[in-house]
Amino acid sequence: MADTVPRLRTAGYNLYYGSFRALRDITIDIPENSITAIIGPSGCGKSTFLRSFNRMNELIPGVTVTGKVLLDGEDIFRADVVALRRKVGMVFQRPNPFPKSIFDNVSYGPRIHGTRDRGVLASIVERSLRDAALWDEVKDDQQKSALALSGGQQQRLCIARALAVEPEVILMDEPASALDPVATMRIEELMQSLKQRYTIVIVTHNMQQAARVSDFTAFMMTDGFRAGNLVEFGATKQIFTTPADSRTEDYISGRFG
């Protein structure tokens, strides 16, 4: 990984839900313009870890953190949270479009960040929908309610909505787990086309998916105290063919989890 620049970095990062330590001492460098998959058994802290990069954990009462999380070398806890979330977008496990029109969903971010001009908004919406591979399906019907779309379309709409604020990083928490195989495939293709310009971090419990789509893979697991640890991180090929840690090998070969 010497030839890649880390965009996201954590160092000695711990997270507590009240007194329960959910993440223990995680240090990782996530390279830019690539897809990094976080895999591991259910409950090992993947979602919690992902939410650390856009400080969404702060919405949960009782959460405390120690250690560092850096975006482009800057401490995200010192940054303005609104500015941070403009740079680090998120796509959730279940598609969550607003109960508004397709257009209003995609233009939501630019609007709250101050873009008023209808023409400018329309071109942002078109570009984002194209990038999310949804444009051809909805271009004639942008005033339709987003809730009338299929699950797969809704998830691509949420991706378009995130793209519209021009983030640097996109976090995806099992973005295809609520979708059928065809919709899942479309999301995976989409991620491939997006990684040229964005740094993507995806949580998945589906190892085939991780192997298919990602460039790098982080394997997490709980330790004896139920706290999530980073067991191994490396190029996806290496993790899936010659894992360094026996626990990674066990997990990948389906011996547990």
Binding site: M90, N96, I112, A162
Partner: peptide, 8 residues
């Protein structure tokens, strides 16, 4: 969550 994650 969707709105906050977009930077509202």
């Amino acid at each position: 969550k969707g709105a906050l994650a977009l930077g509202s």
